[in-house]
Design a protein around this nucleic acid. Sequence first.
RNA 1: GGGCGCGUAGCUCAGUGGGAGAGCACUCGCCUUACAAGCGAGGGGUCGCAGGUUCGAAACCUGCCGCGCCCA
Length: 873
Amino acid sequence: MSDTTPTAARELSAQYQPAEVEQRLYEGWVAAGVFAADPASDKPPFAIVIPPPNVTGSLHIGHALDHTIQDSLIRRRRMQGYEALWLPGMDHAGIATQNVVERQLAASGQSRHDLGREEFVERVWQWKAESGGKILGQMRRLGDSVDWDRERFTMDEGLSRAVLTIFKRLFDDGLIYRAERIINWCVRCHTALSDIEVEHSDDDGELVSIRYGEGDRSIVVATTRAETMLGDTAVAVHPDDERYKHLVGTLVELPLTGRSIPIVADPHVDPAFGTGAVKVTPAHDPNDFEIGQRHSLPSLTIMDETGIITVHGPFEGLDRFEARPAVVAALRAEGRIVAEKRPYVHAVGHCSRCGTTVEPRLSLQWFVKTAPLARAAGDAVRDGRTRIEPPELAKRYFAWVDNMHDWCISRQLWWGHRIPVWYGPAGEVRCVGPDEEPPGEGWTQDNDVLDTWFSSALWPFSTLGWPADTPSLAKFYPTSVLVTGYDILFFWVARMMMFGLYAMEGRQPFDVVALHGMVRDQYGKKMSKSFGNVVDPLDWIERFGADATRFTLARGANPGADVPVSEEWCQGSRNFCNKLWNATRFALINGATVEGDLPSAAELSTVDRWILSRLADVTETVDRHFEAFELAKVCDVLYHFAWDDVCDWYVELAKPVLTGEDAAAAGRTRRVLGHVLDALLRLLHPVVPFVTEELRTALVPGGGSIVTAAWPAASPEARDTAAEAEVAGLQRVVTEVRRFRADQGLRPGQRVAARIDGLEGAGLSAHSVLIRSLARLDEPGDGFAATGTVAVGGGVEVALDTRGSIDVAAERARLTKDRAAAEKEIAQCRAKLDNPAFTEKAPAPVVGKIKERLAAAEADLARVSAQLAALAG
RNA sequence: GGGCGCGUAGCUCAGUGGGAGAGCACUCGCCUUACAAGCGAGGGGUCGCAGGUUCGAAACCUGCCGCGCCCA
């Protein structure tokens, strides 16, 4: 095992070096088993199943975002005392994986058919063992606190059993059927695709208008796919279209083919589009197929599985894209082209795996009848069993599940779950369940496999052991949250909902669906290889650390919204981690400790009570944002608390106490500092696990891993508004003096003699030493002579001896600006208060607040005016 | 064409009825011994446009303009 020596035993270097600690810590966590979830535990469950990445995939920035959110949620719940399960795994990615192995074979001049089905599948398993699942190692780099003992794969034995089980149930319930339908066909992958595996884009094409028939019995149709006219079996018009009423029921000659086809009336034709007449190719267009069904038209397939035309002499053997211009040329030669429009931009479907233009194709496929399943999936969200976050996105979910088409689940591949249906010698069809013997002699199994998403849809329960009644299933189902991108909502999520509700007797697969957006670049542009703006998360992890990478993503993770990132911002996150590192280093050098109880409020200084009050406020706010999946806000609050409150103010205010003569006071502040840092590190741990573990190990010797440390409890009793107000006053004095010094061009380090008046009246008399420390002011000595005065409000005045002439022009400019601001404020407040409608109708607290603002602004004006007058004199 | 969403500082984004904010970028001054991966100070916005509701609108309503996403 690697070196797990606590950092306390070493020196903290001046800079945080993530590369030196991340691997050691991660291996330590896994070895200690802190990520393991125990179904026998009596702690309340909290479970997340990971959206399974492809076995062919590697970690991209989108995964990094998705995982950062999940890990943050899981790590917090684990610290809160839940039995937290984050279950990892991969899917078998039927088409993608088969493509990878087929490419390997092609390199040696082979095809899968040379090997045969059994040997090919064996080869795919071999590929998986050797080079599949790269992403799992990369997830360790990111710090994912998944339970590795539970890693699952959609093709493993248990999950395959789940697939067979649910297939059989659906089949027996009549929810799976086989039919000849128009499906999306990829002519390169040689398989059917479901609707969601087709991506539409607006492409340049052509719109060609063709005249069918002759003379007053002719009719003009327009098409973007001229070659399909070879398969036309009708022309359709709207029944109410007066232009064509006389033609309905007649035959028209289809050019080039010598065939005559009927003109039919169908209400689905849009009479306003084009000529109002459409060609009907039932075998090559889904809408045309439906028209064909309604009018009992024949379906004529004109292409083979590779997109090659199979009919009509001169075109036979041409690819569909070669046939298109050839058909147009032939029609033009016959004088049948009425109009041509190029380019004509229209939506074209592409295979989401290989980008090839999808060909609608009539073929015999297996389908899931989705109507009843989708209804249940919608109802589970409608009645609140599952909550979608952010709620606005539920509308999209409903739009999808309430209009879902039947799902084509058969794929003409070898890699995947083979459809458990056997065909008998007399045409019998039998679905074989997981524990049944296949039928014997003379029967053959369906050649196709199931869509990968069919097995992914079972993920939330198949991974927990279903169909067996396992302790894990009992403990962790329904899972608590599903975290994924909104782009996945309408297919994968909807399908898990359908199958989960069906398999688990109406119990939803997850209580909450927390959606995030896509990672974009710093200008809000989509990342794309061609644009060259793709970020590799592993590159960032190496250069800035896993924590910085995670923090950058988490800080942009507003629910449902896209997440812009940039290298500069990741540097900023790295800097933040380094800031934590150095704050802890300072604390350790100065003896900060978490040992012993915190002194009571009565014993503590105002400043100590202030930072504890801020901590209480921050803890409560962080909890609230976590509950709402507002990770960006969690990060924002902690960033500012750590940097502004703790580092910029508390540490600076603690310095004079820690090095001062009052040993008891120093001891109390050491405890407060240790306590605050410890809580801060624990609050940050879910987002930045590595640096917080390393630092807390140093800060809390023998305290065990932060992974299993308790989540900081909200402590409303620590809120102290009086202390907060007092420190705000102190900060105002310090800031005003610093501003004066900067205006006067005094170097920050230069100490200046000064007399401070009016602290008592402002309730700040206890803080004179701190103010002098932070504003770098010395006590006035012999021969003190004030050369400049800063009136900071609240009656406090600081007279400084700058040992030289002050920059009157700079000071006048500053004061003039302040005077203008005060005058503007006064005018705005007076306008409101002089308006009787306001004073009568606005709530009393609002009116009171405006009066206070007016009084403060008037005091400011008086102060500034007096200083200006003094300057002039 | 239908649906959803967005438009706030140079960039990216918070802010959903009562003093316009953050990060980064920018300007000035600093190696002030935890941190230059830093410290201090500062500049910068007709809140897309036009109406309306209201004592009061960046926020609510209507219309328009521009952009994005999903579906057809």
